[in-house]
Amino acid sequence: MPWPTSPRALKALLADPMGAMGLVLVSLFVIMALAAPILAPYDPLALNVRAKLQGLSWAHWLGTDQLGRDTLSRLIFGARTALSISVTATGIAGAIGLLLGLIAGYGPRWLDAVLVLVLDSVNALPMMMLALAIITVIGPGTFTLILVVVLVSIPSYARLIRAQTLSLRRAEFILAERAIGASTPRILLRHLLPNVLGPLVIVLSMDIPVVIMLEAGLSYLNLGVKPPMPSWGNVLYDGYTSIRTSPTLVIAAGAPLVLATLGFTFLGEGLRDALDPRLASTRPR
């Protein structure tokens, strides 16, 4: 399987309209997050209660919320919150899952059995229930959100890597390496890791929208990021509380959530097709 950023994979990704659209959307969100202080017309935290719940105008393109904060600025900074939490959380979970998966797949059988038992046990816990339990114990906040996502995501990543490793450990090139006396770290890092990373990247990219939705959902319930930090979820909640007087707030807050979810999903599917041409050829055109 080619490396996700190889020219061949990138060319294949851009050739796929859905993949290209996903790449564009995700790129836009990344730019929005990185350049938020430049792009946002106002300070997203600045209150002006005398200008509360204003409609669309040249001064406030997406109106203002119930405390008179500029909605567009809060959504732009909300992209930063959503992406930083989702990328950090899935990144940490992916790294730990990768390590555990490699150990389970390449290590001794007893260790594999123990790890699988632990991973299956964690996996059996319902995600939202686990999230609420953790939040109840240590309180809401950005750290808690990341912790929840990491704990919830590790098992699936570890199982994916374990399965890949198990199938590769009997491959001829690995057996050849072992025959010439290559050390275990060398086999893991030089040969197994590059081969299992591609599928992991695809899964990670497809999981980012799930994390974005989880963050938004918990923030909507006031259990996510703490106010006044802008998050798409708490902007959506602010919109809900004033939906009868200012419905544009809900629409404005819902749009980036939908677009981000679509973008990451299209990108993930595009990457999968680009990295595994056999799959692409079976897809209806």
Binding site: L45, L47, Q66, G139, P140, L223, K226, P227, Y237
Partner: peptide, 28 residues
């Protein structure tokens, strides 16, 4: 509390105390 009125009060207090140099962390 997590109701919208209380949260609005909390955020306004947070902003007004910030002007005096007091950082307020809201615990919904």
């Amino acid at each position: 509390l997590t109701d919208s009125t209380t949260q609005a009060i909390a955020q306004i207090i947070q902003a007004s105390l910030a002007e005096a140099g007091i950082t307020v962390e809201i615990q919904p």
